[in-house]
Design a protein around this nucleic acid. Sequence first.
RNA 1: GUCAGGGUAGCUCAACGGUGGAGCGGAGUCUUCAUAAGGCUAUGGUUGAGGGUUCGAAUCCCUCCCCUGACACCA
Length: 473
Amino acid sequence: MPKFYITTAIPYVNGRPHIGHTLEYFQADAIKKYRQLLGDETLLLSGADENALKNVQAAEKEGLPIKEFLDKYSKIWKDTYGIVGVKLDVFQRGSDEEKHWPGVQKLWKLCEESGDIYKKSYQGLYCVGCEAFKLESELVDGLCSIHRTKPEEISEENYFFRLSKYQEKLIKLIESNTLQIIPSNKRAEALSFIKQGLEDFSVSRSNERAKGVGVPVPGDPNQKIYVWFDALTIYMTGIGFGADEKKWKYWWPADVHVIGKDINRFHTVYWPAMLLSARFPLPKQILIHGFVNAKGGEKFSKSLGNAPDPKEVIDKYGVEAVRYYMLAQVPIDSDHDFTYDRFEEVYNADLANGLGNLVARVAKLCEKIKLNTLPKPKLSESYKQKFEQYKFNEQLVEIWARISEIDREIEKAKPWEIDDLNKLQGLLQNWVEEINQIALDLKPFLPNTSKKIQKLFVQPKIQPIPPLFPRIQ
RNA sequence: GUCAGGGUAGCUCAACGGUGGAGCGGAGUCUUCAUAAGGCUAUGGUUGAGGGUUCGAAUCCCUCCCCUGACACCA
């Protein structure tokens, strides 16, 4: 049985998820459901990046011990998957010293053996208030713009990763689509970044700067492995790397990493380079989505209070409606503005009046007749081709065109005026078969609705069901 | 500042050298099987601004304005 390994991004857990985060969960789950329809064995992984300094700062701010803080917020992120009805196979935490840390250290050692990790002195302007290095360009009159203090000129010994060594290899891999970056605009961005010339990047921090948090550098108790080297490795440790080699070898490489545009570079440049250094196979695809924003392209933010809570939206409209909205309204290669007005418009037009109403009217018409056993629907080749481009919105537009077509056919045939039951049966049989095909095609997008429709028409005698999507007034 | 993408009907977007299209919303109308749902029809646009090339430009070129992103060790 072919296997298909999907991941979503590994977020910081220093805040709460908002409605925009669900886009990625739905995309990843749609891919998983699609692969299952093809008969693949699937694994969907997410996790939490817990060894970042930002978490420590957030914990301090909330007055919680770091461990308690991480337990609390990791659970919130993990539970969000449950709220949106997406079943994760693995949620791998970065603070997991048993399963995660050995893998990070193992990857480090392999890169070190390849000669790609070396010690170098890093010089920079350090703002104590920010606990971060500042670039000249970020300073205002030579002072930190936030703390109004003069940053200290300090130098620190860090370990660096020889990213520069992989520049040409990465270009080749991406241009040949061996490492496939979707969509093309994000691929172009990655290529242009690499072609500007890659510099080695720092992969460790002193214990002091890391506040003692993180995976220790093997053989150097004074340094912690820095966040990207650590966080990205979750994609491997979550499936056994460093702990259960057999399981890891079975699932690795990832078939697709689903991520947001903000972390393009780390997934299309740093991560493949690290894997090349360790001589591991690369992920096959990186699928990069845009952001869901508030009205007018405004970023969702806590301080503006414009970021809807996923649970709130789902409690109000239902999980399938939100899932439909995200997959149908957000193109894979651009951002989208979410508003409740737009949401309700789409809900009524597509779900209540479109799909829901069609199913209801056909079901009602079927009460007079007896359906023959339906042929088993199959995914068409063009459907598969389309799906594998991950243009979810375009695919849904095609399905909705068929819904509309059936509505027109019904209008034309006027089945409610037909007394000849044989003729009526023939017409309805045909429509039900088409709807049954639509139900299959919708499975990755609207799994529950798909199931409800299939169940409704499977019996010879149709029993009416409550509306799939009650109209919003 | 540099590079990339974009600015088209009220809204979301498609056309990417040959008579400006679709969906949604709004209007009218037909219809009743259906969730006051559905069908049909009409309406709706000096295609960001200005200039140029061309028989012909939303589409190619130039200038300008506005938005979005990337430009690395903050993720």
